[in-house]
Amino acid sequence: MLIPCPVCGLRDSGEFTTGGDASIVRPAFDDGDEAAWAAAVYDRSNPLGAHEEYWHHVHGCRHWLIVARDTQTHAVFGARLAGAWAGYQSGAPSDKPGPD
């Protein structure tokens, strides 16, 4: 599987480690709601089809990515950086998104 890292380009999945389902809503760190945390930690759906996942480019730029792919066909639709760098695309003429 190849992952289109917005920083490094199309790279082999062996350079990444997976961080699991990116659609899960993680409560804020100061949210003491045990049930919401339990859902975020333990509840996992097993979706068929389009799915978003966290992948960490550990042997590359070390950015955390959100990769959209299909769990049935394994097709990778695209990837964006997580968090403040979400709009960044290497080589794209942009006014540098990310932390100021």
Partner: peptide, 16 residues
């Protein structure tokens, strides 16, 4: 290291 990077990227992108 990976966990700390995840925290900064996903949970607290506002932290410098």
């Amino acid at each position: 290291m990976a966990l700390l990077e995840f925290g900064l990227a996903v949970d607290w992108p506002d932290l410098k």
